[in-house]
Design a protein around this nucleic acid. Structure first.
Lengths: 335, 335
DNA sequence: TTGAAAGCGCTACCAA
DNA sequence: TTGGTAGCGCTTTCAA
């Protein structure tokens, strides 16, 4: 077991005090003579010394660690989000402790663990948490930001895309291009993303006097989109346009339409949501709504830094980032 | 700034010593009377106390943290891997500090950071590291395991899929089904995954007397697969079967074939590698080689635990997990 | 510019 | 079964 080198050993070798070694490895160490510093670095190099980050956290009482709790890592949207977060945080010298909420596991169970690590901040993506837990976090003084979820009437900050407006825009697009028999394939009804998209879509349809939207309950997966679409196509009133609550379901929808020998978009138009990279692929060429993920992430990181630096400022901030329609080939009559 | 509660405060409220509080919150604490324990838990609850994981690491001199360094998080294969790792490690009470190697950033730059956290173990996925860094890790006593990469002649353990055999099997499949004009679309030539797949494929072709394999250099992305295929189709000798080094490129290949008005598999057969979930989607129905990821992850976690518990045992172990051909609809003449 | 010394919050050993 | 106490490796005053 190769004993780990400590600053004391470096100090001995360099013939300085341990404090001096510490200073040399502190981010800003103006108070060290160049010659001394050289000697210390030299000794450290020789011994293969690395400062112990744990001990540093201990005395500074700040961890430089951001906890991220993410529920659907494998869904196509989140790896990108995660990657971006990692890059941004690494760039500002923060590190990321990542937790996943496994299927059927409540986030409330894992949050206490995260909190034990004294994380400076906590990002919760794609899940909500109970209000009891919110209180816990607030009490522990941890900066918490929800990503792509909102908890209404709580004092917790959040960054999400403006899903209501996104849904409204899809309604306008489909009506403007002359579609008559609209359907909506919903994601899980306990996700605010789905609910907002649906509400915006439905509300706008109603405002414009459209009646009779069909609806299928699905679950954000390819298979559920596929199956729901088959069901819709078998109905008495066969839709001529289907808005899917996310892209993955929309791919399933497109494949289902083709399976029935129909053409997208001539027979049925399909719209997705998220604009994941695959949406641009030849085989699908999916018209969808892009969430401006880069901006969302930027805002989240900014908010986080703000919260960490000014924990006293507790008024929640909700950033709502508008999405953009991305017109490709899966809706007839546009462009 | 809500001051964080420490065990001392709990001790005071419960009128016991701080040691006792510590015992109550230690994983195994047989030496506490039930009544006392109750009183402590009661007090802790009241104050909202959580043990400080950082301080615990400090005194136990073990972090319970596993570092994972991952390069291509957004490529379709890795989110699944990551998710699995998280679940497995969370299940055994370990936590995961995640690092990404951003484009153009050497892993050698970030490894020192990881090491500072005194991680118990380190998993390096989809990148290699310089031998200097390997030495560093070994010296620091950190258990390191490479996932899906190998460093030859180093004493570093690794788990990877048996890409050579996978490539051989594809060669057999394509020859057995009567294909005559074979092509290979390669991933980056500095990845052992690509090199092994290619070597196995090429070697087996040669063994069976086939000559004249065409080859394109690509980069594991959809676009590169797409473009390479277009190029191949424009050549004098148009391939009737293309083996792509990963699934994502294979999707690009299929789309490119269709773009040219040709049929998969009647005109051109396509084979991928990885068997990511999309490969099963209707639109592609890709014949590919599945890496048995679940087994690979299981092995990695096991190896990690072994290394952590027996750091003295330094002989490297290389686990090579055989992949399976998954026959779907993108190769003609089978099934 | 440097060194001595007091913690940070916990664990673990020893004594009671 | 409990309490006292000595660290873990660092940062950070305070003095020199």
């Amino acid at each position: 077991m190769p004993k780990r080198i400590t600053s004391i050993e470096v100090a001995e070798l360099a013939e300085v005090s341990q404090s001096t070694v510490s200073r040399v490895f502190s981010d800003d160490s103006p108070n060290v003579a160049t010659a001394t510093r050289e000697r210390v670095l030299q000794a450290a190099q020789e011994l293969g010394y690395r400062p112990n980050a744990i001990a540093r956290m201990m005395s500074r009482r700040e961890s430089n660690i951001i906890g991220i709790v993410m529920a659907h890592i494998t869904s196509p949207f989140y790896p990108y989000v995660l990657d971006k977060f990692l890059q941004r945080f690494q760039a500002i010298g923060k590190h990321v402790l990542l937790f996943t909420a496994a299927e059927g596991q409540s986030i409330d169970d894992i949050l206490p663990l995260v909190l034990q690590y004294q994380v400076d901040g906590l990002i919760i993506a794609s899940t909500t948490l109970s209000s009891a837990m919110v209180d816990e976090c607030v009490r522990s003084g941890t900066a918490v930001i929800l990503f792509n979820r909102i908890i209404k009437n709580s004092n917790i900050s959040a960054v999400c895309s403006d899903n209501v407006t996104g849904g409204r825009n899809v309604a306008d697009l489909l009506l403007d291009t002359g579609h008559k028999r609209l359907a909506y394939i919903a994601g899980p009804s306990n996700t605010s993303t789905n609910n907002d998209r649906e509400r915006g879509f439905y509300k706008r349809l109603t405002e414009r006097g459209y009646q009779g939207m069909q609806r299928m309950q699905a679950s954000y997966t390819y298979e559920s989109g596929y199956q729901s679409t088959l069901d819709l196509l078998d109905r008495e009133i066969q839709p001529d346009a289907i808005f899917c609550a996310n892209d993955t379901m929309a791919f399933g929808a497109i494949d289902a339409v083709r399976e029935r020998g129909l053409i997208v978009p001539d027979d049925v138009s399909i719209v997705g949501y998220d604009n994941i990279p695959m949406a641009g692929w030849q085989a699908y060429s999916l018209t969808t709504v892009s969430q401006d993920v880069d901006v969302m992430i930027e805002k989240t990181v900014d908010l986080m830094q703000l919260k960490i630096e000014h924990p006293e400022n507790s008024t929640p901030i909700i950033e709502s980032i508008a999405g953009q329609l991305v017109i490709r080939g899966s809706v007839r009559g546009c462009g």
